[in-house]
Computed example of a mutant assay.
Amino acid sequence: MAVAERVLVHGGGIGGLTLAVALGLRGVQVDVVELREDDGALGVGIIQQSNALHVMREIGVLDECLAAGFEADLLTICDPRGEVVAQIPQPRMDGAPASNGIPRPELSALLTRAAEKAGARIRRGTTIADLTEDDGGVQVVLADGTEGRWDLVVGFDGIGSPLRRRLYGDAYEPEYTGFANWRATVPRDPEVRGVVMSTGNRDVKALLTAISEESMYIASVNAEDPGFRPDPERAHEQFKERVTGFGGAIARALEQITGPEHVVYNRISQVTVDAPWHRGRIVIAGDAAHASTPHLAQGGAMAVEDALVLAQELERAETLPQALAAWEERRRPRALWVQSLSRAVLRQETGQPTTPEDDELLKVGIPGAAHHLVQPY
């Protein structure tokens, strides 16, 4: 891969590790730097829909994902009492399973192993302190005092991306939507064999997702003031106060949340970088470029698609500018479509006014989006 023989990946999350595997398999020397000291991923679990599993197959870790998670073919819709209203078959992409719930730490661990097996060097507890680009590469100084030179620097460094701020200052800061995601991991209910969605009193929607034979997570999106943070001692009680009016598996899941340590709270923000996602030899991808609300469960999928497509374009292009332009041409329309529809679903489900553009997107709906996203990218 002559256009980029050495690549520095800033961020060791799902997208960054996927890129490290994809490039390593193509003979590129990859270095990953991650600020967090440990290799445990934050959060609870993640839904890998078929397009994300297609990427996992392409980088050789699909079987590991399925072994660590809980494979499912159906989306189950229940009424507030927990009675099944509908079971919707989920589409598959090019031989990949329909969906897989998996604990985030398990996914992070298996991608780390795959990246190291592909030759990537992963350095934790540091970040980029300074960088200087010239015609031949990027000279980077890390916060631990070491420095090196790379052909390309890629920022999979999240919604608060320091690399994005280096490129564009504060022009594309995260926009808080007014809503937050409450989640907790609990023992899996035998009735939950995939994803279960239900709407209770006050139009509150709750979601159950099996992420292994033993565990699942419960999630709910609720309106929250910008300054709100859960009480460290009462977070479980606050979660339960927001998710009321349910019976069945959801009620049983709530009973399992017995302490604040079980609860994960995330404000839902969005980032839309209208400027190019690359400048010279520096690229931003995943949430750094197009963070979305969770309503299509596609944030992680868009990041790993970004990674695989970038590796493909670097392999086939004759020059680095050609590769980056082709990558962005493939990725921008799809990622921003997901972002726009996901935000429209949030507005619809929470009773906010929708725009004419939202209304047009909402004609597709969540089931239609799943069928759209199993098309080639």
Rank of each mutant, 00 (worst) to 15 (best):
G27C: 09
G27Q: 07
V28G: 02
V28M: 10
Q29N: 10
V30K: 02
V30P: 01
D31L: 14
D31V: 15
D31T: 15
V32F: 01
V32E: 04
V33F: 08
V33E: 10
L35Q: 15
L35W: 13
R36H: 12
R36N: 09
E37A: 14
E37W: 09
D38Y: 04
D38V: 14
D38I: 10
D39L: 11
D39E: 12
D39Q: 14
G40Q: 15
G40H: 15
G40E: 15
A41K: 13
A41Q: 13
A41N: 13
L42N: 13
L42K: 15
G43H: 08
V44L: 09
G45A: 07
G45D: 06
G45P: 01
I46F: 01
I46S: 00
I46W: 02
I47G: 02
I47F: 01
I47R: 01
Q48K: 03
Q48Y: 00
Q48I: 08
N51Y: 05
N51T: 11
N51W: 06
N51R: 05
N51I: 10
L53G: 02
H54L: 07
M56W: 05
E58R: 11
E58T: 06
I59L: 13
I59M: 11
I59H: 10
V61L: 12
D63F: 08
D63R: 12
E64I: 13
C65K: 06
L66C: 09
A67Q: 13
A68K: 02
A68F: 04
A68E: 07
A68I: 01
G69T: 12
F70R: 11
F70N: 07
F70E: 07
F70Q: 08
F70Y: 11
E71L: 13
A72V: 08
D73H: 07
D73E: 10
D73N: 12
D73S: 12
L74F: 02
L74Q: 02
L75N: 00
T76N: 05
I77F: 11
I77W: 09
P80T: 15
R81E: 12
G82K: 11
E83Q: 14
V85H: 03
A86F: 00
A86D: 03
A86M: 03
A86H: 01
A86P: 00
Q87L: 05
Q87E: 07
P89C: 10
P91V: 13
R92F: 00
R92M: 04
M93G: 00
A96P: 01
P97G: 05
P97T: 08
P97N: 10
A98W: 03
S99P: 04
N100V: 08
G101Q: 09
I102N: 08
P103D: 14
R104Q: 06
R104T: 05
P105F: 14
P105I: 15
E106V: 09
L107N: 08
L110G: 07
L110A: 07
L111I: 11
T112E: 15
T112P: 05
R113T: 04
A114Q: 06
A114P: 01
A114W: 03
